[in-house]
């Protein structure tokens, strides 16, 4: 099946060999480039960075070795024994696809997930059901030093909102406008990644503005929120809310996800 189709493509075996080499090499370069420019943190958990780095080196080595053998082979004119292989895609098509994706990824920087994805992945989940397990739980942490994740973890252990009334809050995250909140409220949100972006899920706390409405804080804009904890009933649920004192716009952090 495969040879018939590959004939119709009319790419010489030598050209295919070089496209192969380019495709594998390009993926090697891509992995190393993402590692070097820290774009990997947009895609996977930092503990997998070494794996990507080593794979990048290996892919480049394979590409270089292949290039070397192809050059030598055409000099010596003695063909290597053909290793029969089972192919689903016609010869050359796979490599062109690989090469194309690698080049696209080198030129297009992946965007971190935003409020649309957050809403789609259930940003308004009942907070006591949040999915974060306390990995390092420190009860001694000062409330204002807790990050958004720390807050969610703390709530996981002690879900009663009244416990926290009056505590100071200072958290960083991006703005999400849930449909079921009145315009005085928005959610300050971050994504948690356990392995790669495919499993990212949002965590968030509602924020109440002192005055005005949320339209001056666009969805996806990053903010440092300072305020105190109050308890209100929002979307038919009694929950912890941040009463905002100051809202400072900040640039998107290098590592937009938390872990």
């Amino acid at each position: 099946m495969a040879p018939a189709r590959s004939n119709s493509l009319k790419i010489s075996p030598k050209a295919i060999a070089w496209i192969d080499i380019a495709a594998i090499g390009a993926w090697g370069i891509l992995l190393l480039e993402y590692w070097f420019t820290q774009k990997l943190s947009l895609l996977i958990h930092p503990s997998y960075n070494p794996l990507s780095f080593i794979s990048g080196i290996l892919l480049l080595t394979i590409a270089a070795y292949r290039a070397w053998t192809v050059v030598n082979q055409s000099r010596s004119k003695q063909p290597l024994p053909i290793v029969p292989h089972l192919s689903l895609l016609p010869n050359g098509v796979g490599s062109i696809l690989l090469l194309g994706v690698a080049i696209a990824a080198l030129f297009i920087t992946p965007q971190p997930f935003n409020s649309t994805t957050a809403i789609q992945r259930g940003v308004g989940e009942i907070i006591t059901n949040t999915q974060v397990k306390p990995q390092s739980f420190r009860a001694m942490t000062k409330p204002e030093n807790r990050s958004l994740v720390d807050w969610i973890r703390t709530l996981q252990v002690m879900p009663e909102p009244d416990t926290y009334i009056g505590q100071k809050v200072k958290v960083k995250g991006f703005v999400v406008h849930p449909d079921n909140f009145s315009p005085q409220y928005f959610r300050i949100t971050r994504f948690i990644v356990t392995c790669c972006a495919a499993d990212a899920y949002p965590i968030s706390l509602p924020v109440r503005l002192r005055e005005g409405d949320r339209s001056s804080y666009k969805p996806d804009s990053w903010l440092d929120v300072e305020g105190t904890i109050i308890v209100e009933t929002l979307a038919n649920q009694r929950q912890l809310v941040i009463q905002a004192n100051t809202l400072k716009p900040v640039p998107q952090p290098d590592r937009p996800y938390d872990y």
Partner: peptide, 11 residues
């Protein structure tokens, strides 16, 4: 983003 993260994790 999803696609690339799946690929980079799988490679």
């Amino acid at each position: 983003t999803l696609f690339l993260s799946l690929m980079i994790e799988a490679i």
